[in-house]
Computed example of a mutant assay.
Amino acid sequence: MAQPAWDEPAILPLGSAPLPQYGHGSLADLLPTLAAGWDVPGYRAALTELAPADRACVFLIDGLGWEQLRAHPAEAPFLTSLVAGSRGGSGQPLTSGFPSTTATSLASVGTGTVPGRHGLLGYTVRNPATGDLMNQLRWQPWTSPGAWQPYETVFRAADAAGVHTAQVSAPHFRETPLTQVALSGGTFHGRLTGEDRMDRAALELAAGDRSLVYTYYSEVDASGHRYGVDSDAWRGQLMHVDRLAQRLAEQLPPRSALYVTADHGMVDIPQDEPSRIDFDEDWELGAGVALLGGEGRARHVYAVPGAAADVLTVWREVLGEQFWVASREEAVEAGWFGPPGELDARVLPRIGDVLAAAHDRVAVVATRREPRESELIGMHGSLTPEEQLVPLLEVRT
Rank of each mutant, 00 (worst) to 15 (best):
L212A: 06
A287C: 04
P41G: 11
A53E: 10
A356E: 04
L192P: 00
D310T: 13
R316H: 08
A358G: 11
M266H: 05
P253A: 10
L292I: 12
R117Y: 02
F337I: 07
V314N: 06
S105Q: 14
P339R: 12
G65V: 08
E321W: 03
G288M: 06
H300G: 11
P385N: 09
Y259Q: 02
T95Y: 08
E317D: 11
V83S: 04
R276G: 02
R44F: 09
L69H: 03
R346Q: 13
R255G: 13
L106E: 01
R328M: 08
Y214V: 01
P150I: 09
P274E: 02
W234C: 04
R247M: 10
S144N: 15
H240W: 00
L376E: 06
L30D: 05
M239S: 11
L121R: 13
V154A: 08
L60Y: 00
L64E: 03
L79N: 05
D132Q: 15
D232W: 08
N135I: 03
H172N: 04
P4C: 02
T187P: 00
E152Q: 15
R70C: 15
A222V: 09
G228L: 01
T104H: 01
I377T: 11
G88V: 10
G110L: 10
G294F: 13
A201P: 06
G23Q: 03
P93A: 12
L393D: 06
A17R: 06
A74Q: 14
V318P: 01
A356W: 07
M134Y: 05
S105F: 00
L19S: 02
V40H: 09
A345E: 15
R87D: 14
W148D: 07
Y302A: 10
L27E: 01
V347I: 12
G208T: 14
L248H: 03
Y259T: 01
R368E: 11
L120P: 08
G112T: 07
R368V: 11
A202L: 10
G265I: 07
V213E: 05
G119E: 08
L69T: 05
S108A: 15
T384R: 13
S374C: 12
A358Y: 01
V163K: 12
A36K: 12
G352E: 09
V318S: 07
E281P: 00
D54A: 15
F173Q: 01
T80E: 01
D54Y: 11
A201M: 02
D159V: 10
V229A: 13
P253F: 09
W148K: 02
V332I: 15
Y43D: 03
A298F: 07
G335S: 09
L292P: 04
G190A: 04
Q21I: 04
G65C: 03
A147V: 14
S108P: 02
Q3S: 12
G91E: 06
G85V: 12
E281L: 15
A207V: 09
G341E: 15
L312N: 05
G286F: 10
D282G: 02
